[in-house]
């Protein structure tokens, strides 16, 4: 037994020294270096952040940002040949998939909040949006209270469905909350009259409605379920070296004229697949988020003075 123990310690010591030798790189960076690949999680229908274009290839504002991050990672690791792998995620699967290492960066429309920061980390905010609902104009729904007793859809795994269920309980509305897999599916429920309204971040609602067969038939509520909350690109928690690279890359991009250019590309110009123009020029809050990049989960941190 003693001998076995001795042998064991020797092996352990050997293992420890090899580990100590490779100390410069840890976590995700080490993994990217070892495997020569970085995995990006993309969404089906988070227009214009991360969605599938006509050729079913993921594109979008967040995707562009992520490719910039990948460039920064390549530079950091001094390796031009890092392969980019794409892995589909849904609102329901994205957080566990970041945590369990399936994806390294989640590029989409993920709200950065304190709750989620206990599970994952976020880089600098790339967009700010509040939670509202879209409905058919004909239904004449404007306030949250108008949804009383109706069937309302939201995407499962989002902060929005959580806010909806919370409001439902707090205001005693008796709303029948239907969870959908992704935004396009949820919007279809409204389009086909299965639900009267779809609760989601207003920017996503605007792009979904704009892409509908008859965009003029839809209206987005004035009433909001939340303040304008920050969107961030997700990465694994407690991985400071990787976060440092990603933060530096995004901060540099947002502050540079290129940041505004990418923003304009997706929000004020025609975007695939149908060539629609969302027409959402940069507001004061968005400008502030870009000039002084921050990963704060607090909506108030982004208020323009």
């Amino acid at each position: 037994m003693k001998r076995i123990f001795l042998l064991g310690t020797m092996i352990a010591a050997a293992v420890c020294t090899t580990q100590a030798g490779a100390q410069e790189l840890t976590g995700t960076l080490k993994k990217i270096k070892d495997t020569g690949a970085i995995t990006i999680g993309f969404r089906d229908s988070s227009v214009p952040f991360s969605y599938l274009d006509d050729n079913q290839k993921p594109v979008g504002f967040a995707m562009d940002i992520c490719y910039k991050i990948v460039d920064a990672v390549k530079k950091e690791l001094k390796n031009d040949k890092i392969e980019v792998k794409l892995n589909p995620v849904t609102s329901a699967t994205r957080i566990p998939l970041i945590a369990n290492g399936t994806v390294d960066l989640e590029c989409g429309s993920t709200t950065n909040n304190a709750d989620r920061q206990k599970q994952v980390a976020f880089t600098n905010t790339h967009f700010l949006t509040a939670s509202r609902f879209v409905s058919k104009k004909a239904a004449k729904l404007d306030k949250i209270d108008d949804l009383k007793g109706k069937s309302v859809v939201s995407t499962s795994g989002t902060t929005n469905i959580k806010q909806l269920t919370e409001a439902n309980a707090a205001r005693n509305l008796g709303i029948n909350v239907i969870p959908a897999k992704d935004h396009a599916e949820a919007f279809l429920m409204v389009e086909t009259d299965r639900a009267v309204a779809f609760v989601m971040d207003d920017i996503l609602l605007a792009s979904l409605a704009a892409g509908a067969r008859d965009p003029s038939a839809y209206v987005i509520s004035k009433d909001a379920f939340s303040k304008a909350e920050p969107y961030g690109i997700m990465l694994r928690k407690e991985d400071a070296p990787f976060k440092k690279v990603v933060d530096a890359a995004t901060a540099e991009l947002y502050k540079s004229p290129e940041g505004a250019k990418i923003y304009d590309k997706w929000f004020t110009q025609k975007i695939p697949p149908k060539g629609l123009n969302l027409n959402v020029p940069m507001g004061a809050e968005q400008k502030k988020a870009f000039t002084s990049p921050s990963d704060s989960p607090d909506p108030d941190a982004y208020a323009a003075n």
Binding site: I4, F5, L6, L7, G8, T9, I11, A12, V15
Partner: peptide, 8 residues
Amino acid sequence: LSPQAGRG
């Protein structure tokens, strides 16, 4: 498996 027994 024993060689690993001591590895904690």
